[in-house]
Amino acid sequence: MSLFKELDLVCHQLCLELKHEYVQTVLPKPDIDRDKMTIYYMLFRMNEPQQAAGSYTKSVMVAEIGLNTHETMTCEKRTNKELLKQRQLTVLSGDFYSALYYYTLARQSNIELVKWVAQAIQNFNEYKCALFFPPVHFGWQELIHEIKKIESALVGKIARQLGFTHVVPYISDFFLIKRLIAERDLRNEEKHTGYFSKMRLDDDDQLVEKLDWEIKSRTAQLSQALKRSEDQSELFLKLKDYINLQLPLTA
């Protein structure tokens, strides 16, 4: 079976795992980041047979989705019952997904992976707090650096623990670029996630320009880094092909 067919199967099983009939009547279906899923699968597949790699990928993706669900939490006062219910279920479905990764991994007897994910989630939340409540004002590059840490908190941790530290910089850059693109697109739709709300910029156009520049420059740097690398490991070559294929699509 080809990698993409294997991934289709994992994705289908993941959708089934995430399914909660009532929650889905109130909240949209959770987004599945196909790039993240692919990279997790590549990492696990290096040392595991197809089925185990698929199961571990599903579990860590569920953890990622739990965190992403809580990302959408809003802070303003709500009195409308339906909006209130949406908020309540945002909290509770995120908690459900966070519980589910432990539940599925315990059934696969992989407690070591449970520990790595739990540690990564702690880091993720520490980075988030540092971003939203920085002890000192962040400059542009410091902010970008913080966002990069957040975006690859889980996947970077798993890669390192599996012994693939050499690919972490490329993965981190790739997911940073994806986030910057998402932020730029949200700005264009006049929405925001709060990541750049503390930047003291004169207007939104300036932010979009800065994001554009950052995306282009980082995309070029990542392409160059992939090209120049002398790493000939199987994982690196697979990742290189995948990232090179996805970069023009994302940028």
């Binding site: 908020r87 995120g94 432990y102 939340n125 707090c129």
Partner: peptide, 17 residues
């Protein structure tokens, strides 16, 4: 609310670790 999400998720992950 966001800080409450971060704090709860952090404590929960600590428990599991």
């Amino acid at each position: 609310n966001r800080v409450a999400m971060f704090t709860g998720d952090f404590i929960f992950a600590k428990a599991i670790e």
